[in-house]
Computed example of a mutant assay.
Amino acid sequence: MRYNLLVVLGATATGKTSLAVNLAKDFNGEIISADSRQIYRGMDLGTGKDIEEYVVDGVEIPYHLIDVADAGYKYNVFEFQQDFVKAFEDISSRKRLPVVCGGTGMYLEAVLKGYKLIAVPKDQFFRDELESKSLEELEVILRSYKDLHNNSDLETKKRAIRAIEIERYYAANPQIDMEYPEMKPLLVGIKFDRESRRDRISLRLKERLKSGMVEEVEGLLKSGVSAEDLIYYGLEYKFLTQYVTGQITYDEMFSGLEIAIHQFAKRQMTWFRKMERSGSNIHWLDGYMPLDEKIAKVKELFNA
């Protein structure tokens, strides 16, 4: 079987969307987003949806798993896995190529490895026990699980507690079987050197703030999404919500957010290296390579 799935991955601010949509156009494909926050409606600038990039030479590229849940909802990897399979089979049934685009390593690995996941119920008593612990203590607990599925949800206590709750449930319960379609993926990554990546992140943050990212958060709060729910999503929504609600100054928001995104990008690259160590063959492209050369290289790999 030749490749039936194309995956474009990389850290934040590496230009994944542009490459993915151009490849989708050339390969008669459709995009499946693998971004844990682009799921939510109304969270556009902060998640970097860049919907305008889904039109190439006047051709609209269809996309899936973007804007499928209301802001405030707690979408999870189990739901993503189910929704991904539906999108993959739908696209494939129409003789088009599924093109995955995203940087959420946990989501990518869950579908590429076909993890047998289960819907984990909430355990309020257990949550209450963890609530008194610091974020650092929660991190130690989370990393104590041998078969850790998720080591990235450490931005807030609420996310860390939920991650521990999930790992605890996995450890105590057998995983269910899930029918999974046969996939032969070609994985392509975009990579910049560390300093270039940092510069691109800082530049993009400034551009998004100018484009109205603060106003986006204000609008979400006015629409009824709670500050607590927005902070749950981390990164832009955590720091901007704290700024809008008067908890921190603008300068504190900007510097804290800039550092947090740099750290997030580092964690993303760490996850991708872990994927490689576990057997995923990622073909890395130099981020500074012109777009047409990136496209030509991917075509060469795909048709080899």
Rank of each mutant, 00 (worst) to 15 (best):
L5V: 10
L6A: 00
L6S: 00
V7R: 00
L9R: 00
G10V: 06
G10Q: 07
G10S: 09
A11I: 02
G15A: 07
A24G: 13
F27I: 14
I32L: 05
I39P: 00
Y40S: 00
G42T: 05
M43W: 07
L45N: 04
E52R: 09
V55F: 12
G58A: 11
I61M: 10
L65W: 03
A69V: 14
A71Q: 02
Y75H: 08
F78E: 14
Q81N: 06
A87V: 06
F88C: 04
R94F: 01
L97Q: 09
P98A: 09
P98C: 07
V99K: 00
V99S: 02
V100S: 02
G102D: 02
G102K: 01
G102H: 02
L108R: 01
E109Q: 13
A110F: 00
A110D: 00
A110L: 01
L112I: 13
I118G: 03
K122Y: 10
L135E: 11
L135Q: 13
E139F: 07
S144K: 05
S144W: 08
S144M: 08
K146V: 13
L148V: 10
N150G: 03
N151Y: 13
D153E: 13
R168G: 04
R168Y: 14
Y169I: 06
Y170S: 02
Q175M: 09
Q175S: 15
I176P: 00
E179H: 08
E179Q: 09
Y180M: 12
Y180K: 15
G189K: 01
I190N: 03
I190F: 08
D193P: 10
E195G: 03
E195R: 04
R197M: 11
R197I: 05
S202W: 05
R204D: 15
R204E: 15
S211Q: 15
E215K: 13
E218S: 11
L221I: 12
K222L: 09
S226R: 06
S226L: 07
A227C: 06
A227Q: 07
D229F: 03
L230A: 02
L235W: 03
Y237E: 03
V244C: 06
V244G: 06
T245Q: 10
T245R: 09
Y250K: 14
L257V: 07
R267D: 13
T270F: 11
T270N: 14
F272M: 11
K274P: 00
K274R: 11
E276C: 03
S280G: 00
L285S: 02
E293C: 07
K294W: 13
L301I: 15
A304E: 11
